[in-house]
Design a protein around this nucleic acid. Structure first.
Lengths: 341, 341
DNA sequence: TTGAAAGCGCTAACAT
DNA sequence: ATGTTAGCGCTTTCAA
C-alpha cells in the first residue's frame, strides 16, 4: 500500500490547548453528557469553531466500542427498486446521526463468483440484509455474535428469529385479482412468477391461487409462467405464450421491473394494452407511472421500509423486543388494467 | 445515549494467544507487508480462521491515520441518474478494498434547510462531490486540508484546481442537432434548459446554440424554455408553449428525466411523437429505452464516471497529478426522433 | 524473524 | 466542575 502524505487533522488536544482546558472537558462539551461550567463551555465551543474541529470517527469508535454506522447489504445496487429504499435508509440513518456503509454483493467484474461481503461486526453496528445478499451461515454467525440484523423481503432462517420486514404480498395480489375480476370481468389471468430465491415470489403466487379460488375461478397451470422479476425473461415468456397460441385476458407481471418486457412482447404480437390484454404490476417503482399505458400496480411502501429497517436496528441496539413487520400496500389504479385513471 | 450490550469481538490478542505468537506477528501476517516465517504464518492463519477474526476497522483507522473509506456526497440520492453512478462507485471502491459512505444533502424532512454534510476529514479518505451538494467554502476547507476530492458535473471553483469529471455535453447536444437537422430535416428545434445550479445546463445550451449556427439555423429565443431537468417543470413548459400556439419540429428535453413530462404534454395536446414532434433526451438513464416511443438520447457513461471518480481519488491519495476529464458520449438512436431503430 | 512498546484520538471511570 | 489516566485494537518503530 502506497504511503500518502497524511492529512493533519485537528485533534481534541488542539482544542483543549487553545481553550486552556483538559481534553476531558472538551469531550464533555462535545458530547454534552456531563455538566460543564457555562463560561468554560463557551470558550471550548469557540475553540472548536476556530479550529474547525471534528472528532475522529475512528478514535471515537474505538473507545465507544461502536462504529456509529449501519450497513446495507444488497445483491445488486443498480435496481430501480433500491432508489427509494436507499433514500429511506439514508434519511433515517442520518437522522440517527449515523453513517451508512453500502455493499453490493452481486456478480463481480469477472461475472464469476459473488464477492464476499465487506460488511461485518468490525465496521458496523448493525446490518440491513436484503434478500439473497448473504448466505445463511454468515447470517447466523453475525447474529450469534449479537450484531443487530434486519432482514428485508426474507424471513429469518432456522430458529434464528432475526426481525424481518416485508410488504403484504398476499394482500397486494388479492387486490389485483379482485379488481381484474370484479371491475373488468377477466377470467383468464396469467401469472409471472419471480425467482425461487425471492420469498416474495412464493407469497405472490400463493395469493394468486387463493384469490382465484375465492372467486371460484379455476387455476390453469399453463397460465403460470416464469418471469423472474426481469424484463427480458418476462419478454421471452410472454412471447412464447403468444406464439404457442395461448390466450388470456390479463397478465400479472410479477413486479414492475418485468412490465416493460411484457408490454413489448404484447405489442410485438399486435396486441393492445389494455384493450386486448390488461397488464398489472407490483411495487409502483420509478417506472410504473411512466410506461405507456401507465401501469396499474400495487404500491410497496419502499421508502418506508427503509426507514423502518433503520428503526428496527436502533431498537435492537437498545435491546428492545423487535418484532417483524408486514407493511400494508396500496392498490394503484392507472390505465394498463383498462381503467381510465 | 442508551448503553447497549456490547458485542464481544475477536481481537488480534485472541489470535496471538491461540497461535502462540505476539500481536505484531499476527499483524504482519494479516497485512502481509513484513516477512514472517512460513510455519508461523500458517499457524496464525489457522487461528484467524478458527476464531473468524476480522481486524477492527476503527483501530486500524486510528493507527493508520486513514479511514479506508470514501464518501459520496449527492444532493438527492433517489434520482434515477444515481443508479448506475452508484453501481460504478460501489464496484470500484470495493475493488480497492475500501468502504463507501454515502450522504444525501437534499432537503431534510421538514423541507426547510439543507442538512449539513455528514462527510468530512474525520470519516473519509476522500470524497466524491456531486454537483450542488457542497457549498464552496466547505469544499475549499476540505481541499486546503489536503483531503482528496473529486467533483462530478461541476468544475473547480476559484483557483482550487480540484479534479473534476464530466461528460462531453457539447458533443452530445451537437450529435443531437446534427441528427435532427441532417437526417430528419428539422429546423425549429426547441430546447429545454436545466437548472442554473448545474453546469451541464450551461454547456448544453452553449452546444445547442453553436450547433444551430453551424447549420446556419437562426436561434429563436422563444424556442428556449426552462425545463429544470425535471418531469413536471418540463411538462408545464411544453404545455404553455402549445397553448400559446407555438410550433416546433422537435424538442430537446434537457435530460431523460424530463422526457416523460414532455411526452405527456405533447400527447395531451393531441400531438404524436415522432410523427408530429420529434423528442430527444440526454443521459440514457434507466427510463430512456422504456418510454413509448423509445427515447433517442445521448448516453452518458455514468457507471464509468463513477469508477473514474474512485480512480481519481486513489490517484490523489498517492500524490499523483490527477487531471480533470471529460468522458466521451455516445449518440443512441431509437424511435422518438423519427428513426425506426 | 520475532517481540516489546509507543502511539493513533477519543471516552469514561476515578480523583480532586 | 474539572483534570488525570487507563484503556479501546491496531500498526510500526526499535531492539533483540
Amino acid at each position: 500500500m502506497t504511503r500518502r502524505k497524511s492529512v493533519r487533522r485537528t485533534t481534541i488536544d488542539d482544542v483543549a490547548k487553545l481553550a486552556g482546558v483538559s481534553i476531558s472537558t472538551v469531550s464533555r462539551v462535545v458530547s454534552g453528557n456531563a455538566p460543564v461550567n457555562e463560561d468554560t463551555a463557551t470558550r471550548v465551543q469557540r475553540a472548536i469553531e476556530e479550529l474547525n474541529y471534528k472528532p475522529s470517527t475512528a478514535a471515537r469508535a474505538l473507545s465507544d466500542r461502536r462504529t456509529n454506522a449501519f450497513g446495507l447489504l444488497v445483491s445488486e445496487i443498480a435496481a430501480p427498486y433500491y432508489l427509494y429504499l436507499l433514500r429511506g435508509i439514508e434519511m433515517a440513518v442520518r437522522e440517527a446521526g449515523l453513517g451508512l456503509l453500502i455493499n453490493s454483493v452481486g456478480m463481480s467484474e469477472n461475472q464469476q463468483e459473488k464477492t464476499r461481503p465487506f460488511l461485518g461486526e468490525h465496521n458496523t453496528d448493525g446490518i440491513i440484509v436484503s434478500s439473497g445478499s448473504l448466505p445463511d451461515e454468515e447470517l447466523q454467525r453475525l447474529h450469534e455474535l449479537g450484531l443487530p440484523l434486519v432482514l428485508l423481503h426474507r424471513t429469518s432462517p432456522n430458529g434464528l428469529s432475526i426481525p424481518s420486514l416485508n410488504v403484504d404480498n398476499q394482500a397486494g395480489i388479492k387486490a389485483i385479482i379482485d379488481h381484474l375480476v370484479t371491475v373488468h370481468g377477466h377470467q383468464r389471468i396469467a401469472f409471472l412468477r419471480g425467482p425461487e430465491s425471492e420469498e416474495d415470489s412464493y407469497w405472490r403466487e400463493l395469493g394468486y391461487r387463493e384469490a382465484l379460488q375465492a372467486h371460484g375461478l379455476p387455476i390453469d397451470p399453463s397460465l403460470i409462467g416464469y418471469g423472474g422479476f426481469d424484463e427480458h425473461i418476462s419478454y421471452t415468456m410472454v412471447s412464447e405464450w403468444l406464439e404457442s397460441g395461448m390466450s388470456f385476458d390479463a397478465i400479472f407481471t410479477g413486479n414492475d421491473e418485468a412490465a416493460p418486457g411484457v408490454l413489448n412482447a404484447l405489442y410485438e404480437h399486435g396486441l393492445r394494452v389494455p384493450e386486448d390484454v390488461a397488464v398489472v404490476g407490483f411495487d409502483d417503482d420509478h417506472l410504473a407511472s411512466r410506461l405507456t399505458p401507465k401501469l396499474t400496480t400495487v404500491r410497496s411502501p419502499i421508502e418506508q421500509l427503509g426507514k423502518e429497517a433503520v428503526a428496527q436496528l436502533l431498537s435492537l441496539m437498545e435491546g428492545k423486543p423487535t418484532p417483524s413487520k408486514i407493511l400494508p400496500i396500496e392498490f394503484i389504479v392507472r390505465q394498463s388494467c383498462g381503467c381510465s385513471g
